[in-house]
Design a protein around this nucleic acid. Sequence first.
DNA 1: CACCCAATGCCTAATTTTCAGGCATTGGGT
DNA 2: ACCCAATGCCTGAAAATTAGGCATTGGGTG
Lengths: 185, 185
Amino acid sequence: MANFTKKAIEASFIKLLTERPLSQITVKDIVTDCGINRNTFYYYFEDIPKLIETVVEEDMVTIIQSYPTVDNFGDCLEAVLDTALSKKRAVLHIYHSTNRDIYEMYLWKVCDYAIEAYLSTVLGGHKIKENDLDIIKKYLSSLGFGIVSNWLRNDMSDDIRTVLMRLMDIKKGMLKEMIHRCEET
Amino acid sequence: MANFTKKAIEASFIKLLTERPLSQITVKDIVTDCGINRNTFYYYFEDIPKLIETVVEEDMVTIIQSYPTVDNFGDCLEAVLDTALSKKRAVLHIYHSTNRDIYEMYLWKVCDYAIEAYLSTVLGGHKIKENDLDIIKKYLSSLGFGIVSNWLRNDMSDDIRTVLMRLMDIKKGMLKEMIHRCEET
DNA sequence: CACCCAATGCCTAATTTTCAGGCATTGGGT
DNA sequence: ACCCAATGCCTGAAAATTAGGCATTGGGTG
């Protein structure tokens, strides 16, 4: 079945998280908001951190699934930004809590995924050393993670789309140049 | 509890009703859309007409509850129009089906309610004969019902808000005049 | 016109989900 | 240092959902 109750818990949580910081939200608040028994919360979630994890993970999984292949990893990053923007206050309240690590864990996953998919697209027939490939991956995913982190750190105040477009533009030829340099002869 | 499943059934139904006429929607379609067992449908609803009734009734009850007192029954009518507009295609598919009677039944209820509440506001201390009062009620509720019916008949194509405002304007003094004529001395 | 098949409405029994109430522990605020 | 609300967990009862089946109906097709 479709677990409407579980979804309702998540929805209430996001709703409350839009209203106030995580530290001011209790399990009781959540179950009261969606009109269910407190035990039902524990039936679906171990605790609030697990609920956060579920909510964040679902978003990130949705993003990943909507990019089976990645031509330009800027597009995938943009999906992360769009999703975050759609529930801006809630995301910031998670990010500015003791549970930032949960958000970052899944952000890394998305960045790693995007880079992996992107590289397999771009590399094509080129063969480069495993070591060099790892370094390029680290470079790209760190770039992605850093961009989003910096944006969150500034409470999403930057015009991230413009920044992103300009950045992708600047580094456009760089990757192929890097690949060329690392290519095995 | 909050019956999330029941609400999901109603939501799926409205969704499907936005896509195609009532005659092309089966119980199976509905349960498939919201991912539940067919028996669960029958757990909550006797059949599709009952589902229609529930959906329509909930809308109308919401409208009535949001008007504990009615100063101008045009406002209450407007709420009916707004609700209908918000799910235009679905409402029209109900209206243009063999179940129009269900919609009309609750439309009458809202009109009757609005008129009842409105008259008790307007009448104040005036005392008029029971018979005359009944006639005035019939007149007003028929007016309301007729306006909405005519609008639905034309597939909500009229600029109903303007029509309504103008009509309320025209008949502004008429009611007090009628009351005055019927007043017992 | 007869046929067919999908849809309906209903049933039973098993399973899953939700609830009520209680209890020991924890930790932040006064 | 204390208190009280929140937590996490437990049990058993109740409610909701499921699987699977069955007889009936009615619209569409050959």
